[in-house]
Each structure stands twice: as structure tokens, then as C-alpha cells.
Design a protein around this nucleic acid. Sequence first.
RNA 1: GGUCCAUUCGUCUAGUGGCUAGGACGUCAGGUUUUCAUCCUGGUAACAGGGGUUCGAUUCCCCUAUGGACUACCA
Length: 502
Amino acid sequence: MEQIRVRFAPSPTGPLHIGGVRTALYNYLFAKKNGGTFILRIEDTDQARFVEGAEEYIMESLEWCGIKVDEGIREGGNYGPYRQSDKKEIFRQYADMLINKGDAYYAFDTPEELEGMRKDLEKAGKTFIYNAELRDKLINSLSLKENEWKEKLEKGEPYVIRYKMPRNEDIHFDDIIRGHIVVNTGTLDDKVLFKSDRMPTYHLAHIVDDHLMKISHVIRGEEWLPSLPLHIMLYRSFGWDPPLFAHLPLLLKPDGKGKLSKRDGDKMGFPVFPLFWPYGETAKGYREDGYYPEAFINMLVLLGWNPGTEQEIFSMDELINAFSIDRVGKSGSRFDPEKAKWFNHQYLQNKTNTQIAIEFRDYLRSHGYQDDIIRLEALVGLVKERVSFVKDLWEQTDFFFRAPDSYDQEVVKKRWKEDSAKLLIELRSQLENMVDFSAASTEPVIKAWIEKNGYNTGAIMNAFRLVIVGTLRGPHIYDIISWIGKDETIKRIDKGVTLLSK
RNA sequence: GGUCCAUUCGUCUAGUGGCUAGGACGUCAGGUUUUCAUCCUGGUAACAGGGGUUCGAUUCCCCUAUGGACUACCA
């Protein structure tokens, strides 16, 4: 059987969008599932849009996601170079092959001339297509006499190389996800294959590279579907067997219409990129927002693919095992930031308290507190179920580290009664004598004391929580006082009684 | 405008020529927690519309509508 080789081929024009990450992920899963090779190829044939740092960003993003590249710029491989600008001479040779074969030609029209004609025709209600109908009226090696266009070449006039699309021919092809598609060449134009800056366009470069790199399956975004007929024609002209194609549906914005863009993220407060983008107009990333890469990937993989079972939580290994391109859907998926949070919650709950405590320690430092890891582990155990992110732990635990310096006025109004101070002072004396301050020890004692005196449990517990926490929230009160300790508990009771009895 | 693609609960989706159309997120209601959150249980909610084909269509075909992509010397 043929060796499976797939590639992810982004262009370094900015940060990698999560739609791009998903494409990379599906390629990776497909490769690993089938014992194949995952290749990262940088398509930097557009010199004008090149962005410094984008290439590094792409590689770092894949690494963070746990998508391992088998062949690429860093990894090497036998099918390099893996950066297209490093092999532009090679592309030129292939463009010449097409010219010699008569399937491509030189065109000398300037962009301004073409734009002018396009506008004129549009005014007349017609569509301008550089194709068999019009190419004779334009300036190229088909319309000009041989000596004329050769002279232009010799004089060094700028030119492009265009593909000579047949006038009227049905092109049949298959897409793994979408099935059989037929397009007539009459609706297609003579696409530019080689630009006047002596770089190939995407169309030429990726066909040549995919062939040279022995790519077996092209898995890419749906936006390429309309140009697939051209690509099929190119394979035919070169006399090469095309790879198999799978065009992935798009990722849509959470509300409204259209595909997901950076603006949506800014507007609705969620990241559209895996990592923070530090150049120019900066953009936030999932990593910096506190997402675990496993959760991010798990969320992303289910946008457009499902295993056909009810399993929702997948490790990368499980994904590799379960993945099948047949189960990729056809329609675009709307991205849901709420579900992304839910996934992170799931992953956070599955971490050990130790792991979380180590991460939490860094956040604590930024708030000016520290504690030893054993105590932090215990603390994490009390509150982790309440949060989806480590960074949210602080707002669940701030009162463990500092006594309240003000009290929730609504609670005071409702729960602080005439006899609250007296009851808390009694409670204080109960606690004061206890040696073992664990919840298991204090809880029954306090309960018994309340019962014996026929006190109202609610009145005491709410007042107690108020002076310890400052408001009515948090874990079991006995767990809280155990963690902060007897001295601190007594102090907080005293402080509360003093301040609230005024 | 032209070409191509798509359409099941609000969202991600499962599914079949005959099912009470299933799950998850969200939401709502109860329960647990004398707090809050979590958690548990339950509820709400969908086959875009119209024609066919068929004994029977959510499922197959056509049309319409809606949405999307592409339509650069960008990828």
C-alpha cells in the first residue's frame, strides 16, 4: 500500500488562526492513524505579505498543541527544502515545462490594464475572465506574433506565466468529504502560475511541491475547493497522478454569520489564536488565557469531526486511534466559547492536586502570597471543582490568605443579629480549647455545642462564615478554619465581633 | 453578478426509507451542600420550505430560500 504522507502548508502572514490549527490537527491525526508522515511546509511565495516571526509562531503553536512534525524546516527530511522561497528556481523549471508543452503562456498585461478592462466590462454588465474567450484580445504569447513576444522577453519586459485553460471541457473529480464534483473549464480563468517577481503562485508551487514531496492526501480548508479544478488540470498537464483531496468545512463565528475572525474574538472576549501574538497589533492566545493544550485540542477536534460514539474527552493518543476522515462533517461549525471553557474544566478536574498547586503557586506570587506546596495541595483540593482555570483559583481562595477587612453589607443586614457577637464569643471559647483543629474534629464538637444549648444553627453558621470569609461563599466552613488554623480563626472572630458590634 | 459547497434542538452533533429523532454545551426546574459554586436528577428544545419517488420520507431526486467560500501577479 502507498505510503501516507500529508502536509500542513500555512503561509507566514501572521498568527495561525484556530481554523488553521484544526486543519493541521486533522492532517496530523490522519497521518498518525495510518502510520504516515506529517510534513510542515512553509508557503512563503508572497513576499509582500511576509510577516516576521510568523514562521516561528506557527512552529511554536503546533508544538504547544502536541502536534509533532515529522518533516519540516527544523526537523529536516529527505524532501526539502521545506520553505518554498528556498526553491524558487525549481518552480521556474516546472513553469517552463508547461510552456514548452503548450499548456501555459507568457502574458504581458499589467495589473492596471487588467483592472481597467475588468471595470469597463463590469459597467457593461459583463464579467471579465482571462480565458479562452478573451485571451486573444490581450497581450500574451498566444495573441502576439512569435517575434513580438520574444522581443518583449528579450527586452526584459515584466511578464507572468498563465495556465491555458481549455475552452469548454467538463472536469470530473472526487473529494473525500464532498463526493463527486463536475466543473466546466469555461467558468474558469487562465490563472497566473508564475509572477513577475519571479516567484510561483500558490497554484503552481503547491502542485509541484506536493508531487515532489510525494504527498498522498491533501487535507485543507474548504476555501480551496473552487480552485481544485485548476489543480486537477495542472496534474494532468504535468502527467502526474493527483493525490486524494479532502476539503474541510469552515469554522464560523459564534453569533451571526460568516467565518470566524480575529474581530469576533476581540468583541466577545475569547482567543482566536493558540498563542499570544506579540507583533504589531497584538492578539491573545489560548495558552495565555489559561487553557490546557489538551483541552484546546479536544474542543477543536470536535468542531467538524465526531467519533460516532458518545465519548467526548479524548487524549491525543485516543484521537489518533479514533480518527477517521470519513467522519468529518460537511457543513461549517460555529465556534462556542462556552464549550471551550467546559472542556478546560474537565481537564482541570483530572489533574492531580499537586500539579494544580504547582501552577497555582505562580499566580499566588503575583498576588503577593506564598505557602508551601503541601498546604496548597490541600487548598486546591477544597476548591478546584469550582473553577475551570488555574487563574480563577485566586478569587475562590483569597480569603484563605487574608482576613476580610470589610463585610458584605447585605449579609450583615440579614444575618448579624443582636446576639451574634455573644454567640460567636461562646463559639470562640469552644474552639480555643481544641487541640486537633481538623474539620473532622471541630465539626462534631461545634454541632454538639449548638444542639446542647438549643441554638439556631443557621444564625451561628452564617455569622461565623461572615467573620471568617467576609461574605457567604466558599467551601465548608470547618475546612476553611482548619486550613487557616486556630490562631487565625480566633483572630478573625475577634476582629469581626469588634467591627460588627459597633 | 458568476462558479462551487452546505442546511437535524440556541450551539456542537448522532441517526434511519417505518425510532417516543439520541448525546453533549447552554438554559430552566428540583435535590444535595444551613453559604456560594460544584455535583446529581429531571425538563425545554431540531429534521429550512415546496414539489416529487414511495405503501411510507428527516433520510432519495428536483426546485426555492437561507448561509458560506471563491471569483488578485494572496495564500
